[in-house]
Design a protein around this nucleic acid. Structure first.
Length: 445
RNA sequence: GGAGAGAUGGCCGAGUGGUCGAAGGCGCUCCCCUGCUAAGGGAGUAUAGGCUCAAAAAGCUUAUCGAGGGUUCGAAUCCCUCUCUCUCCGCCA
């Protein structure tokens, strides 16, 4: 049997009828569309599929006739002989179709999303557009320390022990900083659930391959993930298998949160869905050797409060603006200066049609550093996930999905350490967090 | 971990090899009827593909009864593997 439904990242109809346009738009984000491969596979697919279906139709009608004749008690040996010969031809056609479809599928699953019209064309982060700034970087009348030094002097960040336990790019927080880290996550969750209308969700931290394909991490970015297997298994042999085999640690809660609507038809009146979850995130950081090796900026494991919205396609771009606002609100309440960047075509992630990064001011680096990334994936993930909505009796339509950090907890901790540092090496607790810290105002030696 | 029972359309539920994409019911949509209400009658009611077509409409066609594979001219139905759910026992935070 051949599966009829195939998942693609871009609208396959669009791809067939509007190929040149799509190639041009993908080129803007630096993607070289494999035209020759695609066209050859498409033409193969067309002829093989037509052949296969014709043979199937023949077989079906012959089988039906056999059934009818049998019931009448007629002799069926003649038709039987005729159909029997078809078997091999059909099987061969089906196998061929399967092979072509698989190759086509592989190709299609690796094509990134199309940039939205409002996204500036550009090559890398230097072409991103600054939208706005909030807050003024504080001037210090003493030499500022970076967060790693501050934490180590306080003896509340212990990288050595973390390395002993797990290796490089892990960290261990103690005492007041561990509590501050927890307070931050609580504060973020409370803000998003109580003020921004999000529904708090607790999610699995291990997900199957379908989820990762749905949000776009697979098949292309396997190397960025951690795969796990249970001790009872020899190997995670078949990544496609559901169940304990082939599970991966989530690189972000976007994966489980967005996949909540995989293979579902959401009633129109339930839209938009707004989910928030606080989870650890696990990333292999392959290919980032030497970058941000010091401190908490780039870790294999970090906590994040993630926002996900599932919206009507006509509402997604205004939803993106509000989602960015929700993330910004956290920084405002923490009184941390930041700027909002609109990413250019070349700097966006695989699944995104449009992305805003929020960058927080880090005094020790004298620079703004990413603390949140908010993306509208439009129908890209929804198509991979078959996430749809239905209006009345009309046909189901693909939803739009959005996600954003609200915020990365570890990096927020970094920002607080650096922006709220005092000359004596202590940290002032931001006003808004004191309720979560038992009222204390300062963390010091 | 052991024993057993299951998985069918929006829902319930029939279907153990043949005109089955699937009876029946509920729900829903449209229409008719009845002065309102209630009741009644009729029609319709899955999804994703492909082909024909400039396109639309329409037509033809394929696939899908938890998933994957197998047997067969033909599979919801038979066989194998897996997943999930439920019940009982054991174990466990």
């Amino acid at each position: 049997m051949i599966r009829g439904a195939r998942l693609h990242m871009l609208d396959i109809q669009q791809l067939r009828s509007n190929l040149q346009n799509i190639i041009t738009r993908l080129a803007q984000r630096g993607y070289d569309f494999p035209v020759a491969d695609f066209e050859s596979l498409e033409s193969q697919r067309k002829s093989v599929q037509t052949l296969t279906q014709t043979l199937q139709a023949k077989r079906n009608s012959a089988s039906k006739q056999i059934g009818i004749a049998r019931q009448r008690g007629e002799d069926v040996s003649l038709i039987m002989a005729e159909v029997a010969n078809m078997g091999d031809e059909l099987k061969q056609a089906e196998n061929q179709l399967e092979a072509v479809q698989t190759r086509l599928q592989q190709l299609l699953l690796e094509i990134p999303n199309l940039p939205h019209d409002s996204v500036p064309a550009g090559k890398d982060e230097n072409d991103n557009l600054e939208m706005r700034r909030w807050g003024t970087p504080k001037t210090f009348d003493f030499p500022v320390q970076d967060h790693a030094s501050i934490g180590e002097h306080l003896k509340l960040i212990d990288f050595e022990t973390a390395a002993k336990l797990s290796g490089a790019r892990f960290s261990l927080l103690k005492g007041g900083l561990a509590r501050l880290h927890r307070a931050l996550a609580q504060f973020m969750l409370d803000t998003h659930t109580q003020e921004n209308g999000y529904n708090e969700i607790y999610v699995p931290y291990l997900v199957n391959a379908d989820c990762l394909r749905g949000t776009g991490q697979l098949p292309k970015f396997e190397q960025d993930l951690f795969a796990v297997r249970s001790g009872a298994q020899e190997e995670a042999d078949n990544p496609d298998k559901t169940g304990p085999a082939g599970l991966h640690l989530i690189p972000t809660a976007e994966v489980p949160l967005t996949n909540i609507v995989r293979n579902t038809i959401v009633p129109l009146e339930n839209l938009p869905l707004q989910f928030v979850a606080h989870t650890p995130c696990f990333r292999s950081e392959a290919g980032s050797y030497g970058r941000d090796t010091r401190g908490l900026i780039r870790q294999h494991q970090f906590d994040k409060v993630e926002l996900v919205q599932i919206t009507h396609p006509e509402k997604s771009h205004e939803a993106l603006e509000s989602l960015v606002g929700h993330a910004e609100k956290i920084l405002q309440k923490l009184e941390l200066p930041y700027r909002v960047m609109l990413l250019c075509t070349g700097d966006m992630g695989f699944s995104a049609a449009k992305t805003y990064d929020i960058e927080v001011w880090l005094p020790a680096q004298q620079a703004y550093r990413e603390i949140s990334s908010c993306s509208n994936c439009e129908a890209f993930q929804a198509r991979r996930m078959q996430a749809r909505f239905r209006k009345g009796q009309e046909k189901p339509e693909l939803l739009h999905t959005l996600n954003g950090s609200g915020l990365a907890v570890g990096r927020t901790l970094v920002a607080i350490l650096e922006n709220y540092q005092n000359e004596d090496g202590s940290i002032t607790i931001p006003e808004i967090l004191r309720a979560y810290m038992g009222g204390i105002e300062r963390i010091g030696l």
